[in-house]
Design a protein around this nucleic acid. Structure first.
Lengths: 392, 392
DNA sequence: CTGAAAGCGCTTACAG
DNA sequence: CTGAAAGCGCTTACAG
């Protein structure tokens, strides 16, 4: 920090001075300010600002002179000054939770990647760009007691916040969402926040029925996500409901928790096998990432999938189709999740919480769709073959 | 944009007013300002600022009063105001290139994920946090002529920039890097920028020798990354060198380009097979992502890997070990790449380009390591088995 | 040690 | 249509 704050001290006169573009090759060219532009254009800074922001009706001549000067200097307005003055930062803060509980295992030497959240972010980003916004990303470690503070600090650098999953206590969330627009993904809406999620219930119901009726599996386990995840709970409940209705046996509980991660899924299976537990006919995982771990552990034990045990995921991340066997999953349009979340916060900016056309309090569900591949027991090879041949 | 700029107009008196915390449940609680804190603490804003920033030696009493008021109001300083005044935004801009050329294929319905860049970003983020910085992410579509402008705009919202891959012309890069610290990843250093990359040469050399001498493959193809990628070129050249020296045949060229993506890798293989080309004994891919596509295409054709054709990747992204066969690759510590890039820009902030202790012009190489798994023809199953059993 | 004041680089009513 | 001025919410020499 020292070197940086030291450097922050003004080193030159604050008075705008002529920019020497070509003179000093490696000199620290201070970016030009609006004053420089105004001087070169022979106008006031107000006129420059108006031309650049399309306000008022500047004369063609004025426009020209400004544009020329801007071009000559390569002027781009400073973001902080613009934000302070316009009361708009054109930045949305995004908070992810960093996976916790790294254990010593083959998975520990390199952090797992967060394919699902990363793709959500990609979706947000694309829409953000269209509105001239950027995304300020921060992943918080929930073990840190400081996590709440960090999120509040992020909020003051942004016009709105998108929170992946549960990263704040209800009280903190409430406090925050009164000061700044907040949208959660895979959370729950509150009076002052909106939430975006996939249709967990419908997706899991279709998957469960497929396993129960099309494949006639009679013992099914559920590998849950991390504790307190609404997605994981709703998926688990939907599965339980279908299973119960059909008189099928459900295995679930702490020993089946995968925490949404490959390492978690693999370890759960390893522990169960080590404990001599008899495996169920099908293992339904709360997401694809943990299904990857389950597949891995089963393969190492020489247990055939789907022959001996069927395995399914949720999300349909891009690699799902590249696994062997190809992973049956429930597709969410992951990027849409992000895009929708962005559009939602964006719509909340500048609106008072109690105004009419407001997303606050809304729970937005996006459709899901069962994708049958090989790992559930279906054979999709011929079909996939056809599709790739059609494309080629 | 309309609704937002409209909303940006000040709606209340600019004079700081007492915050009514509990009174109006869903009122738009304007975040408190430093003036509010000062009033409640009975001090000047200067004192508040000093306490909060650890400047000077405030009396214990003064400290207490400030801290209490801050706590009471839940005050967090506005980022834009802080940035403007302190001349430090505590933000680093990150630019990725968005993959281009989406084709109609089984890969087209959902964008591919960018596992490699996403993990790099994760590495940057962790270090950034330690310095109190956040990452402002923007992915640019290089097909857009506006791409350069967008990057300059991002620069004015940041204290420094990290560019993945090549996203600017040399001229633009030069211009930019005189105004703001710039570090590239997998690019080339210039007089005013630093670059961070994995040891491509060493990694590829080890891989090539492994294929040539340990496995005795005599015909090897190289699936290149996207055009102009220094990483791809250096890897290709290192491979060519080893192959030539050993008198082995190398297949390469446009028809073997995978563009770093699974879709690209799969399509290249499909086209070659469709054209009746005889496949080489080993296919060396410029990265893991394209190797995934190659594996996929070969599997669909019923071609056994590594039995008939060996396949290797580069990067060792986390899923590499979960593929069937497990992918042989060259590991880079992906997160370290990001962490190093961040530390490097961070060190450049506030330093004039010509000052002494400066990273500018440096090319920082991080070690790589050959990871032998199954897809090259080795059998690692027993070994992997042991390692997971050890962990369990 | 503390406060009053200037200044960071913009935008935007307000006059003219 | 344009310019002078105020103001956004902070930090930081500068006096006292």
């Amino acid at each position: 920090m020292d070197t940086v704050t030291g450097a922050a001290q003004p080193t030159q006169s604050a008075q705008p001075s002529v920019q020497v573009q070509s003179a000093s090759p490696i000199q620290p060219t201070q970016p030009p300010t609006i004053y420089d532009v105004a001087r070169i254009a022979g106008l006031s800074i107000a006129s420059v600002s108006r031309v650049l922001n399309g306000q008022g009706n500047p004369r063609a001549d004025t426009r020209q002179r400004v544009l020329l000067a801007v071009e000559e200097l390569g002027f781009v307005p400073d973001g902080a000054a613009r934000a302070l003055s316009a009361r708009l930062k054109e930045v949305i803060g995004v908070v992810l939770r960093r996976p916790q509980g790294r254990d010593a295992s083959i998975f520990a030497d390199e952090d797992e990647n967060l394919q699902f959240p990363d793709m959500i972010n990609r979706g947000m980003e694309i829409v953000a760009q269209r509105h001239g916004f950027d995304l300020l990303i921060r992943s918080v470690d929930l073990d840190e007691p400081d996590a709440g503070r960090q999120i509040f600090a992020l909020a003051r650098k942004s016009d709105g916040l998108i929170l992946h999953d549960k990263v704040l206590s209800p009280e903190q969330l409430d406090l925050l969402s009164r000061q700044v627009p907040v949208v959660t993904i895979a959370g729950e809406p509150t009076e002052t926040t909106a939430n975006v999620h996939g249709d967990n219930q419908g997706g899991m119901r279709d998957l469960a029925r497929h396993l129960i009726f099309d494949h006639s599996y009679r013992v099914i386990a559920y590998v849950a996500g991390h504790e307190g995840s609404p997605d994981s709970m709703i998926r688990g409940e939907a599965l339980a409901q279908e299973v119960t209705r059909a008189g099928v046996r459900l295995l679930t509980g702490e020993e089946w928790r995968g925490g949404y991660q490959a390492a978690g899924g693999a370890q759960a299976i390893e522990r169960l096998i080590a404990a001599g537990t008899e495996l169920p006919r099908a293992i339904v995982c709360a997401n694809d990432q943990s299904a990857i771990g389950v597949l891995h552990a089963l393969a190492l034990r020489g247990i055939s999938v789907p022959g001996e045990v069927a395995v399914t995921g949720f999300d349909d991340i891009p690699v799902a189709r590249h696994l062997r066997p190809q992973l049956t999953s429930v597709r969410q349009s992951i990027q849409d999740l992000g895009a929708t979340a962005f559009e939602t916060v964006y719509g909340m900016i500048g609106r008072s919480p109690d105004s009419g056309d407001n997303a606050r309090g809304r729970d937005i569900a996006l459709p899901t769709r069962l994708i049958r591949r090989e790992s559930c027991g279906c054979d999709q090879k011929s079909q996939a073959q056809m599709s790739i041949e059609r494309a080629a």
